[in-house]
Write a protein that binds this DNA or RNA. Structure first.
Lengths: 194, 194
DNA sequence: GTCTATAGTAAGATAGAC
DNA sequence: GTCTATCTTACTATAGAC
């Protein structure tokens, strides 16, 4: 990798961390340059359109990929085993990964149409793969179950990670996962719901 | 109501709308003053500590109250009827209400400890009431079912409202509600889960 | 209470030397 | 490629007149 590429990558990496921790608007170009150890002028050499171009780069190169969690678990032998594996993997990826995931949600309105479409595409891809994995277990219910699980994971992360409910409510992801697994198991989704 | 109070309220109202649409950092005091039709100096007369005090005021006076949705539905005759009423009421409150709800999530880290505690308290109150309403129907499962529903609503709102998945996925809240209702019904939560 | 005028600061961005 | 130096603009906030 050339020096140019690695320096450029370092800038994107620093921007990604600062954006996801403080937000795009609250992060200054100065701050990013300092974090990397270069001046602002050097940064503008790599990104002619400045801060806005950096936002695009971060989105394009540092979007969290939930498909990894899926591919790790997709060969699980049972619905129970899959849910256990997948939910644990997604919710157990640590603070930084979570921050980036929810940063995209909070910053979504600032993206241009192409960038918004990119985000949508990522969700749809995740959904389609998830649906494909669930279908052998729950048939036609795979569609609704997929969106239910995705929404549930998102909401739990929002409330318990981002908004710190962890600190006042003793509800580890473990318990939520266990509850959902039993709910799904008991409902007998192998046959279609009305 | 005195002129002072109504002017003050108008400023808080304008700030609330702008904050929830653009974010706290991206909104300037100038912009708020213009929206109300006063100068910045006048605004600083009402809020000595400026923008930061405005954030506190917005949070204290314009926090969305989900308990209203609960009280409307709490006398429903069956679990089905309650879920139908509650989820529709929460998810059907319109764009502005939704925006304020998720704005709190995105801005949470900027709040001071007392303000964060206030937000937590609101969630806990909602949870306790929801649990109380569900308990007659599902017994000890009320605790987990409450957090599951709250997380699910949050996640759905985040994805389909805030991130505009509505536009690319045909999954109206109606269908998600229907699916969850049948899931819960089929699981037979009247008796405890493991 | 609300205004005009302005101080003081920090932001995004660029020119030109090396 | 990276630097120093600087420009322009926008922001938060305040002083003092009315």
């Amino acid at each position: 990798m050339s020096e140019r590429a690695s320096r450029r990558d370092a800038i994107v990496e620093a921007a990604s961390q600062l954006f996801s921790r403080q937000g795009y608007v609250a992060t200054s170009v100065r701050q990013i340059a300092e974090a990397v150890g270069v001046t602002e002028a050097a940064l503008y050499y790599h990104f002619k359109d400045g801060k806005r171009e950096l936002l695009s780069a971060v989105l394009a190169e540092h979007m969290p990929n939930l498909l990894e969690s899926l591919s790790v678990c997709e060969n699980a032998p049972s619905l129970d085993a899959f849910l256990d594996c997948f939910l644990h993997h997604v919710l157990g990826r640590g603070q930084q990964h979570m921050e980036r995931l929810w940063w995209i949600a909070t910053e979504f309105r600032r993206f241009n149409p192409q960038e918004q479409a990119l985000v949508h595409e990522k969700y749809l891809t995740l959904f389609h793969h998830l649906e494909g994995v669930l279908r052998p277990f729950v048939g036609e219910n795979a569609l609704m179950l997929s969106w239910t699980l995705i929404s549930l994971m998102f909401g739990y992360g929002q409330l318990f990670w981002l908004q710190g409910l962890q600190e006042v409510v003793d509800l580890p992801a473990e318990r939520l996962i266990g509850f959902v697994m039993q709910l799904v198991g008991r409902a007998g989704l192998a046959t279609d719901l009305g």
